[in-house]
Each structure stands twice: as structure tokens, then as C-alpha cells.
Amino acid sequence: MKVLLLTLCLATALVAEELYEEVGDDFNASEVLENPRLLSSYVKCLLFQGPCTAEVKRIRDALPEVLETHCAKCTKRQKQLGQQLTQGVKKNHPTMWDELVAHYDPNGKYQDAFKDLLEGN
């Protein structure tokens, strides 16, 4: 019984390590999208053009892998936030969207990943 319990604990720990660190509960995507100054600051961080908060820096550091793996290590909430932010930026701030795509996908390699994220897949 102890061996089974230990095995389950280790398996749970390994699965937990496979996911990205959860975004803080206080992160509000709508607030970011509705605040041009905050959104611009986040985009500058993502483009390596300005300072970053710790949370946005973690996102920036993970983005290449997120795109490569189609967000395989993302939690459900991270996928929802990513979809909301991606759709909002693409729709309401097309210049920022174009800058992000040019930076993270200059050759169009991740178009399927962007499409999946926009559609919530």
C-alpha cells in the first residue's frame, strides 16, 4: 500500500512538472486588453523592447515552446487566457498583433498554432 501511495505521489509530481507554472489568480485578461498603456507595456516586454514584470517574462520565455508544442503544457486556464488575449489583440490592435507575429513567427511556421489558439483548440 505504501509503495502504491508513493508511486501515485511521484506520478502526480511528474505530471505537475509537465505543465507551465500557473498564471496568478489576479491576472485579468480583460483588464489588460482594456488598458492601452498596460497592453503596450506587455507587448514591449514580449518583443524585448521594454521592461517586464516577472509574470510576463515567464510568458515571454515560454512562448517559443508554447508555439512549437501548440500549448501542450498549458493548463486549461492558460489556454483560455491565451485565446482571450490573442483574439483581443488581433481584433483591436492589429499593429501590435503584426509585430508579435513578425517577432515570434517570421517564417509563418506557427500559423496552425495561432489558428488553434484563436479558435480555442
Rank of each mutant, 00 (worst) to 15 (best):
E99I: 00
W97L: 07
A72G: 07
T75D: 09
L46F: 14
T12S: 14
M96I: 04
L6A: 13
V101F: 08
M1L: 14
T53A: 05
R58M: 03
A11I: 09
L8Q: 05
D98F: 15
A16K: 03
N35R: 04
C52Q: 05
T75Q: 13
E68C: 11
K57R: 14
A102L: 09
C74A: 12
K115Q: 14
L81K: 09
Y104T: 03
Q80M: 12
F27Q: 09
L118C: 06
V56G: 01
G82F: 00
R58N: 13
V15Y: 10
N121F: 03
H93W: 15
H103R: 07
A16E: 07
C9D: 00
N28I: 02
L117K: 01
V3C: 12
Q87C: 06
Y42S: 04
T12W: 05
D98P: 01
G82I: 00
C9L: 15
Y20L: 14
A113D: 01
H70K: 09
E31I: 01
E119M: 00
Y110R: 03
L10M: 14
V23H: 07
C9H: 02
K76M: 04
L63D: 03
T53F: 02
A11H: 08
D98K: 14
V32T: 10
L14M: 05
R58P: 00
L117E: 00
R60G: 11
E119W: 02
A11P: 01
V32A: 03
K76H: 08
E34N: 14
P36W: 04
Q84V: 13
V101T: 06
M96K: 11
L39H: 03
R37C: 04
L81I: 13
D105P: 08
T86P: 00
P106E: 05
D112S: 09
L8C: 11
S41N: 11
E55I: 02
Q80L: 15
E34Y: 08
H93A: 12
Q80T: 15
Q111L: 08
T12E: 06
A13P: 00
K44L: 06
R60M: 09
F27S: 07
T7S: 14
E22Q: 09
